[in-house]
Design a protein around this nucleic acid. Sequence first.
DNA 1: GCCAACGTTGGC
DNA 2: GCCAACGTTGGC
Length: 162
Amino acid sequence: MTRCNLRYWLMKSEPADVSIDDLAAFPNQSVAWYGVRNYQARNFMRDQMKINDGVLFYHSNCKTPGIAGIARVASTAYPDATQFQQKNKYFDAKATQEQPRWFNVDVQLVRKIELISLAELRKHTELSRMRTLQPGNRLSITPVDPAEWEYITAKLVRPHQE
DNA sequence: GCCAACGTTGGC
DNA sequence: GCCAACGTTGGC
């Protein structure tokens, strides 16, 4: 059965926090994308993400930022557990079990790739409209056009070499 | 570590 | 509901 309504996303993670290798350490499991505390990014997860949506796993705030792997959405959104944990840095006193404020999906690594650096992405005019490449953009989750996804996966992705 | 850009907060 | 102050993001 073919589903044609899948979407594509770019999701940023600081490798010092959760890196591609952390994700790869759970080859057949999914990891909760907890800790998003931005309403736009939350809404993308809560309202639009579906299982099997494509994900570009992006390393941010590090020496060489860029796309480090391909992943997939592995669950629909559910309340982010960390908002209820008082000692967690993502604790939110205004969130309740009855009215959670923050949601997350689960993400599963599909494959690690040779890093496609931000500098490399900027060289391709086909990608010049990517949301994450726009000046001033800080959103940790952004939609990716199907054409952009196709271009990146067909032309830029290389298998990871050890 | 700097700093520009942006989102959120809270006083009024 | 305005907007200044503040905190965060993230490339460099």
